[in-house]
Amino acid sequence: MLKLRELEAALQEVEPFAEPRIELEQYPTSAHIAAHMAFTMENAFGDLLGKTVVDLGCGCGMLSIACALQGADHVLAVDIDSAALDIALDNAARLELEDDIDFVLADAPWPLALGPGARQVDTVVMNPPFGTKHNAGLDVLFLRRAIEIADGAVYSLHKTSTRAFLQRKAKELGAEMEVVAELRYELPKTYKFHNKQSVDIEVDFLRFDCSQRHCT
């Protein structure tokens, strides 16, 4: 298991999107944030070592790679964008993790089966589109599906302004939401319509406990 500093250093090797697509809200997850997320998932909650993990909307694979480095046994990384997956595949290979991560090109609501009795997926991790501009409601669609497939927990990033709303949604879906950390998420000047060099927004790192959720 890596120390936090080592994890973040390793994740600096992960290449970002070559040409981010605005309609998919392709903001890269920084090495710093991904390292903190994976470190916390394992060290505070034991949700990675020896577990199966799904990364919904994996983009260039930052969170998948972070989870694999923190001991996940099998990561299934799903994204709608084949160009992003090509980069993710290269990233995984560069870090010698290609054996730990499988990639699938797919769109919401994702072609994932729920398994025979116990669900097959322990942990879902994601940095979903914030669902604010061109894709209202997409954040909740991600969350709904994530809670459905996770046997243990879902970890996700959401705008702090949506916290109370997500708390209610989580309850409706049978999961217990906990704010693990409050972050300042720096959106680099990825797209032309951003005037300032970078924009800080307040983001919650959330954990949804799905273990009490009754199978239907």
């Binding site: 199966t52 099998h74 299934l76 499988d102 699938v104 072609p111 994932l112 089966a113 398994g115 097959q120 997926v121």
Partner: peptide, 10 residues
């Protein structure tokens, strides 16, 4: 793609 992943896909 591993067969584990195949087992999880529909």
């Amino acid at each position: 793609m591993k067969l584990l992943t195949h087992n999880m896909l529909k």
